[in-house]
Design a binder for these strands. Sequence first.
DNA 1: AACGTACCCTGCCGGC
DNA 2: TGCCGGCAGGGTACGT
Length: 267
Amino acid sequence: MPELPEVETTRRILEPHLLGQTILRLEHTDPARYRRTELAEGRKVLSTSRRGKFILLELEGGLEAVIHLGMTGGFRFTRHRHTRLRVRLEGETLYYIDPRRFGKWWVVEKGDHDEIGLLGRMGPEPLSAAFTLPAFKQHLAQTSRKIKEVLLSQESVAGVGNIYADESLWMSRIHPQRPASSLKPAEIKRLHEAIKAVLEKAVRVGGSTLSDASYKQPSGESGYFQLEHNAYDKTDQPCHRPGCRGKIRKIVVGGRGTHFCPNCQRL
DNA sequence: AACGTACCCTGCCGGC
DNA sequence: TGCCGGCAGGGTACGT
């Protein structure tokens, strides 16, 4: 589900439930996926943050819980059939759900991310000042990989997944299969701005809840960005760009379903 | 370095 | 109605 806007929405909703609270127990039966969670027990949550698609909880005692939601991970405030882990707090229980079990938890010494390789090589946060046009330009110049694959790799910019890659490329009128190093300065500038605009808007409306509803906010409420999608999941529908007579097509890029307008996103 | 493929899992949808 | 293949927001580990 969860790309940057969904993860950030989740973090914002959880934060007031966690700050200053003691994690009494983290109950689960899968120590391979949810690692060293016993170290968090009995400790207070000092702060919450997000890096790309990871949620980070700073804990007492110099520890940190790192959570990746995978494809179908999320939280609920009430019991749920796909509960994989229960977070017992002083006054309530949070239910971590994950039907496909691609999500993972780690409890580590704060900042010790050796075990989580992606965290170490992840690019800048797209909604922070660290995501500069010159740095983005330089990253893209270094590789001939397809631009969509580069966006999904997390290494040039953090937190962009399949939906927001398609939406950003549509907005900037760039074909998903263009070699990254072939993008012209004006195109990179459009893409840089599109990534920020798309993610900002999506965060503002609580992310995307698709028809299968695998992502919802912890209360069960939907996000609303799916109403603003222009490419993702719009196969065969007319392109929304004013004056464009194209029709959204679906292809496979980097093994992922990819939606784009062949008329205004040319190879 | 750049691809391709398989894999980790479960649920849902469309076609037959 | 029922079965079955295909597909899904992510990421890793292989091979060539």
